[in-house]
Structure formats: C-alpha cells, structure tokens
Nucleic acid binder design. Structure first.
Lengths: 173, 173
DNA sequence: GTCTATACGACGATAGAC
DNA sequence: GTCTATCGTCGTATAGAC
C-alpha cells in the first residue's frame, strides 16, 4: 500500500500506469487485479481512502489529545512535516485532482480535504474564534500548505512550506 | 494556442492526449506535428512559454505602470481573477508539474514561477521592505493563490481564492 | 499546411495454469 | 494468491497524397 500511494501521489492518476504500480508494488498485473478487481480506479479509491485514514489517525488525531491547545497545533505541524517529508513529497489531493478523476474518487478527495479543514477549524474554535472565523483560518492554513507544496515541487524551494508549518499556531489561534 | 493551453492546464501533461489536443485545436494529428515537429513535448514547451509570456504582459505588466503602488497591486489581483476565471481554472504550473515533466519543461515552469514571485517582490520592495522580507511576502502571496486554486479544484469552494486576491495588497505592503 | 492512413509500442484489463 | 500469456484499445508518432 505504501508503494502504491507513493506512485499515485507522485505521478497523479493518469501518470500512475499499471507498469509503474506493478514495479512499485512488486506484484504482477494480475495479482493487482486480484486485490483490486475493478482495476486502476479501484486502486485509486483504495489509495485515497487509506491516505485519508492515515491522515486522520497519524496527523489530525493529535488535535484531540489533552495537551495544551498550542502544543497540539504544533504537533500537527510536525506530523505534517513528516508526512510531506519536509515539503519534498507532493500532496495526493493535488496530484489526484488533476484532470477528470472518477466521480467517486473526486468525492473522496473532497471529503478528505473537508475533514482536514474541519479538524483545524475545531482547534481554531477552541481558541475562541466563532464558526465562520475558525473556518476561514483553517482553510487558509491548509491553502498555505497546499500552495507551498506546489511551489516546492516546481522550484525546489521548501522555505514556504517551513513557514506554513511554523505559522500554523498563529494562523489558528 | 488558447485551446491547447486549456487542455494542458486542465488535464496536465499526461492527461493531455493527442486526441484531446486534436479535438480542442480542430487540427488533425499530422497538422499538429507539422507545427510542433517534436510532438507533444514540443507543444508542452510552447504552451508553457506562451502562458509565461501572456502572464508577463497581461498580468504582471501592471506592476510597471505609473499608478500608485497599491492600485497596481489591486490591478494585478483583478488580472489574476480574470486569468483563473475567479478560481475556477487550474494553474498550468500546478497541472504540468505533476509527474516527471521533461527537463526543459520543468525548467520553464521554474522560471515562470520565479518571475511571478520576483515581480511581486519588486512591488513589495517599493513598499519599503528589504530584499529578504519582500521575497518572503511575494512568495507567500503566490503560495496562497496556488493553494487556493488547488482547494477550489477539489472542493469547488472559491472563497479562499477570493481572499488570496483581496489580501494581495496587505500581503505585499 | 492540412489531410487520410497506418505503424507500433504502451495502455488497462482478462484468461487460465499452478 | 501469484504467475505467464494474451487481448483489444488508445497512446505517440510518421508517411505520403493533395
């Protein structure tokens, strides 16, 4: 699964050919079809679902601990640094939303993005902001990260990503 | 050219098949090859170069008029709204940088991005910020726009894009 | 400069042996 | 559950007529 995720996040849906998925996974085509009977679309769905799940449990889960609010935000930031390898890895949400993804995949991407924003918005509400303001702050925090990842991919400059992470507490609080 | 650009910006390099480019342009394959002898890669290069050129002349050129600084920034913002159709159109820099673009295309994408940032950084320096600070402000302004476009593509929510445009003056000044 | 026709490899997907 | 072998289609690219 790790390797399938890696292919999709780096290459996007169209670029993630069965040949690459086969090589990355170490399984032959037909074995992949055994596990994902509906083919590449099935793999894409599974990959997005798995990443969404990991994102929730490994990154956003820190929002719900009993640490002080700012510490939780900082921890989420550090989790994000790990997840995107300090800005060197693309975001699956970006890669997979290029072109016309299958409707179900598009829906999963939308839900994952919304869940991410909502998790951050919850933290911002804890800081005392009203619903609308918290939503804006959370959205802009995610936007900064997404934009920084695009920039890092194009120019190799990861400083904007580092700033987006560092600024996470002040953006939400 | 408009239609070729549209295909690449919406579909990305891998998704921009010759069939789509053919349909969009109204020319047959062989006619496209007559104009772009090195094939699809040649089209991609031309598309990125053309967009970079347009971006410079139609959007960033407003930076160099003799209007008041803030007015120039606001005008660039409005130009961006038009260019991205209020956030509904993807950015070519994002779409085309998914996967492994050919080296020369990647270089063009990098240059275009850097030129964009530099143009905004020039305005920020005019506002009195030092080189480093201006560079950061310009970068983060571009990051906000790129991130907002990703978000709009995934969720359909264009409000972050509108905020990124509205915030352009305060980000640079 | 545009077209029809076609080459040929890569694509996603499947059959059937083990 | 994995494999080899293969299918039909679509991919990029080219040849050659007009």
């Amino acid at each position: 699964m790790d390797r399938l995720i890696d292919v999709f996040r780096r290459e996007g849906f169209e670029g993630a050919s069965l040949a690459r998925l086969q090589d990355a996974s170490g399984l032959k085509r037909s074995s992949l079809y055994h596990r994902f009977p509906e083919g590449k679309n099935d793999m894409a769905r599974a990959v997005v679902a798995e990443v969404t799940n990991r994102f929730g449990t490994r990154i956003l889960a820190a929002a719900g601990t009993d640490s002080p609010l700012e510490d939780r935000i900082t921890e989420i930031g550090q989790n994000l640094v790990g997840f995107y390898d300090d800005g060197q890895l693309p975001c699956l949400l970006d890669s997979m939303s290029i072109g016309q993804p299958a409707e179900d995949v598009a829906e999963l991407l939308d839900q994952a993005t919304t869940a991410w924003i909502n998790a951050l918005a919850g933290l911002s509400r804890e800081a005392g902001h009203n619903r609308r303001e918290a939503q804006i702050r959370a959205t802009d925090a995610v936007v900064a990260i997404q934009g920084a990842l695009v920039l890092a991919r194009i120019t190799g400059d990861r400083s904007a990503f580092e700033r987006a992470i560092t600024a996470l507490p002040e953006r939400l609080l």
